[in-house]
């Protein structure tokens, strides 16, 4: 459980996050949705302890994330950031190995190696493990970075728009793999509402830096809440047993 109380974050003159109160449940996939500029990425960074709020607390695993040492925090949550241009020339295996760094700090044990092998297997990267991350396609690259986060073996995985710029095949592939991680809780910023509708167990709708709606997807999200959240008429519907969101 993540308990967020009164989280406020200002940048320049504007309030990016405004008195956020949340109790986010463990297990399953929690999606953060909302229009552009709603503060989704900032919320994720702030919950991860990567961006200090002006006030408020974020409690994960019994402690305030902003008062934890970096070393301890790295055992509570892993973080996938939006790709930022420069990719180091590391092999896929080397990249994933760095996921274990918080645990071994430079001296990998047999257990670390076993976990790295498992991450490579689970994300189907065996054929790519000695390739440079830089040389991979967008979808493969994202899979490698998620495998690194997975290898960190944290109860929480925070993913900031992991599906940005991915085609339907990789979108499906990555969401299916995330679904398969039964022992992890996943907090994920999503843009594609149909993906969120089919995969999210829980949802946080963010608008103008405030919580617009939060709760189990099926209980909270209707066509009306989505239309109100995005300020455009949207319809949540079902086609051949799959949920989808269309313009209404």
């Amino acid at each position: 459980m993540i308990t967020v109380s009164n989280l406020t974050l200002r940048r320049g003159g504007s309030t990016v996050l405004d008195q956020i109160d949340l109790q986010i449940p463990d297990k399953g996939i929690v999606a953060i949705i909302g229009p552009n500029g709603a503060g989704k990425s900032t919320l994720l960074h702030s919950l991860a302890g990567l961006q200090k709020p002006d006030s408020g607390t974020v409690e994960i695993g019994g402690g305030d994330i902003h008062n934890m040492k970096e070393q301890d925090r790295a055992k509570v949550l892993s973080f996938l950031t939006q790709s930022q241009g420069a990719v180091p020339r590391l092999s896929v295996r080397d990249l994933i190995s760095f996921g274990r760094w918080p645990h071994h700090r430079g001296r990998p044990t047999a257990e670390d190696r076993a976990i790295i092998d498992d991450a490579i297997d689970r994300f189907d990267l065996n054929a790519l493990e000695s390739r440079e991350v830089e040389s991979l396609s967008g979808g493969q690259k994202q899979r490698a970075y998620i495998a690194m986060a997975y290898a960190q073996s944290t109860p929480w995985m925070f993913l900031d728009e992991p599906l940005a710029a991915l085609d339907p095949k990789y979108t499906r592939d990555i969401m299916d793999r995330l679904r398969g991680l039964k022992d992890r809780s996943i907090l994920i910023v999503l843009h594609d509402l149909s993906v969120a509708a089919n995969h999210a167990d829980w949802v946080i709708g963010l608008k103008g830096g405030s919580v617009h709606c939060a709760g189990a997807w099926d209980e909270v999200i209707t066509s009306e809440t989505l239309s109100d959240l995005y300020e455009v008429r949207l319809r949540l519907t079902e086609v051949e047993n799959q949920k989808t969101v269309i313009w209404g």
């Binding site: 991860a48 925090r73 790295a74 950031t81 930022q84 760094w101 918080p102």
Partner: peptide, 14 residues
């Protein structure tokens, strides 16, 4: 090497 992954990764890797 971890610094080269960027500040977000560096910090979330402890």
């Amino acid at each position: 090497t971890i610094l080269g992954l960027g500040e977000d990764y560096a910090r979330s890797l402890g």
